[in-house]
Design a protein around this nucleic acid. Structure first.
Lengths: 156, 156
DNA sequence: CGGAATCGTTAGCATGGGTAATGAGTTATG
DNA sequence: CATAACTCATTACCCATGCTAACGATTCCG
């Protein structure tokens, strides 16, 4: 393989932290890319829109536009716009904040919740099928690896 | 934690393929998100632009606009546009195809190559630092997990 | 009470996703 | 050889979303 020839040191450097870092970064990026491609063909929402639904679902609570913007690492005007689209499609509901007249809170509609769940289930189903093709030993390794990966991702 | 209370079954279902799939998906998505945030502050290229540089770097060859579009899963007009920007910033060079007068080939400039390398090194350095905080046992697990994750990501 | 801070929104610009259309080049066929 | 069909990149248009600047309304604080 020409790729192997271009990067012959990759196999060796996997024994150092730097080498493992490079290998892990590639694996994670690639798997995420593949997961991202498992979209439901009928789901026409964009990635930022699905991202908002995902944040609301994970938080299991209504959030202000500012909180959503912070969670998704965008500026509030961008989030306003994305939420506008989601309100139009009926996936979220906007309402005034209970105590602060400046704020607006956004929450999942039933439709939006169903959409997140369907999207996740589709990805999980694909991944579960791929996992089935592994050996029990390989699966055991991934079982131990998943929480470590999660830990790596946490804010440092 | 309210999250733990909302999803109490997650800990249990990690013993099934479906449960591992959900846990792994979350870990991978979160780590990738964290990796994506490790951008060099001076790098003003967008994610699609960096994606094109990444494809060219990994391929270690010049590609046509169509090939780039396919690699990045976009339509050719979108790729034309992205390449236009990259040509302006001097990160890629466009030239006519050697034998097919319809085609254009795009290749990394020295500047573009340096940019990809710097971007990767920054992410790898961050990840290597996080890896250093793990135990040797945890690192060994990840060493065994990385190629398995890579295998999962491959086209099925 | 007045000024400063906070919040969400609007406006403008740039990028990039799509589709439709186009012109140029290449290939296949009669 | 001429023509039709196919391929390729590009342009045009629309839409979504990233940013910054600006604004009006609300809240906080001295």
């Amino acid at each position: 393989m020409s790729y192997a020839n271009e990067m012959p040191t990759l196999q060796k450097v996997a024994r150092t932290d730097a080498g493992l870092a490079a290998e892990l970064r590639l694996s994670v990026m690639r798997l995420r890319r593949r997961l991202a491609s498992e979209r439901h063909p009928d789901n026409e929402l964009s990635i930022p829109q699905m991202g908002v639904l995902g944040v609301l679902y994970r938080t299991a609570d209504a959030l202000t536009v500012g909180e959503l913007a912070a969670a998704e690492r965008v500026q509030p005007p961008s989030m306003t716009r994305t939420v506008n689209c989601l309100e139009e499609t009926g996936d979220v509901v906007r309402r005034p904040h209970e105590t602060d007249g400046r704020q607006v809170v956004v929450e999942l509609s039933d439709q939006g919740r169903a959409r997140v769940i369907a999207d996740r289930e589709r990805r999980d189903a694909w991944l579960a099928r791929r996992l089935k093709e592994l050996t029990p030993d390989e699966r055991a390794i991934l079982r131990r690896a998943a929480p470590i990966l999660e830990h790596l991702a946490q804010r440092d």
